[in-house]
Amino acid sequence: METNWIIISDLILRGMAIGAIVATALVLISHSRSRGTSSVAALGVCTVCYLLISAPTIMPIALQPVLVAGATLLPLALTWMATVQLTDDASQRRPVLVLALLTVVTAALIPFWPAMTPIRGILAIALYLGLIILALATDSDDLVIDRRRFRRGFLVAMGALGLIVSVVEASGLDANLPNWIYPLQASAILVLALLFAIWALEPVADEPIKRTVSKSRADLTERVEQVMRRGIWQREGLTIGAFAEELGVPEHQLRATINGEMGHRNFSTFINVARIKAAKELMNDPSRGRTTILEIAHEVGFASLGPFNKAFRAQTGSSPREYRNRD
């Protein structure tokens, strides 16, 4: 009797989670929201497949191959959606996307090559750890408020759940789970689905709202520009916290100003625009022809050549050396 009650509870919770996922996806698609709709739809489909195939009840045989395929693709779908939302930097997306692809490929090989099971488990654990680290590591540089809320809530929680499930599967503990685990798992996914819906369905105006910039915000914008002209960007390891301290304003106000009034989504990109502009001027100066690229990198605020090369290529499409040697 108790087992029947647990199974019924589990089915209700999974049905609610599927309903929340489908409703969210339909609203996003119908309103053409611009927050990575394709990746969200893929994640929704794969999550629904996982909810159905991982239920304690047996699914119809005809549906099982489709559900297994969708569930297998879940790590890749989650990673695709997460990287779209977390960062605009392709080099930050690439490592976790490669891990996700390897996780999916090894999972697909398990029916034909059972020895891949522990490898898939290790890759999945590394993937979800990587997503959590990416969400946390890029948080301080992000100036977009809703994206910061998203990484702190949904993505860290989803990564933690994926990590727990992967550890259980890799250790073989999933072979004989007690029945109460299933509704617990379904409850966790339902909470995540609701968290995502709250974030994704936040009202967005069809057109940008015309608003008058407050005098205090305009004053802060001018102060930011003044400090930039004085060369604060030349400081190695400059953080938004140090910038806010220099201005004597709360960090959240500075984030809102640089993002909302000056149009930058990442603090490092905002600073690097000034640094790369100065670097190009130095390279174009005939009197600085003997100055090495490393010396220029240090002069404009980079601690080493690697980050300088990366930032320079991101803004100009060429390496510093290619830029200097151009015709």
Rank of each mutant, 00 (worst) to 15 (best):
A42V: 12
A42W: 12
A42I: 12
L43A: 13
L43T: 14
L43G: 10
L43F: 14
L43N: 09
G44F: 02
V45L: 13
T47I: 07
V48D: 00
V48N: 01
C49Q: 05
C49V: 00
C49L: 01
C49Y: 01
C49S: 06
Y50C: 14
L51D: 05
L51M: 12
L51W: 03
L52T: 07
L52M: 10
I53D: 04
S54R: 13
A55I: 00
T57G: 14
T57L: 12
A62L: 15
Q64D: 10
P65F: 13
L67F: 09
L67M: 03
L67T: 01
V68L: 15
A69L: 06
G70R: 02
G70D: 00
A71C: 05
L73M: 09
L74W: 08
L78E: 01
L78N: 09
T79D: 04
M81C: 11
M81W: 13
M81G: 07
Q85A: 15
T87W: 02
D88P: 11
D89K: 03
S91Q: 10
S91P: 13
S91E: 04
Q92M: 10
Q92P: 10
R93M: 07
R94G: 06
P95A: 00
L97Y: 04
L97N: 03
V98Q: 04
V98N: 04
A100H: 02
A100Y: 03
L101M: 12
L101F: 13
T103V: 00
T103N: 07
T103K: 01
V104S: 01
T106L: 09
A108G: 14
I110A: 08
F112M: 13
F112K: 15
W113R: 15
W113P: 09
W113H: 14
P114T: 13
P114C: 00
M116L: 12
T117K: 14
T117G: 15
I119T: 13
G121T: 05
G121K: 01
L123R: 06
L123Y: 03
A124D: 00
I125N: 05
I125R: 10
A126V: 08
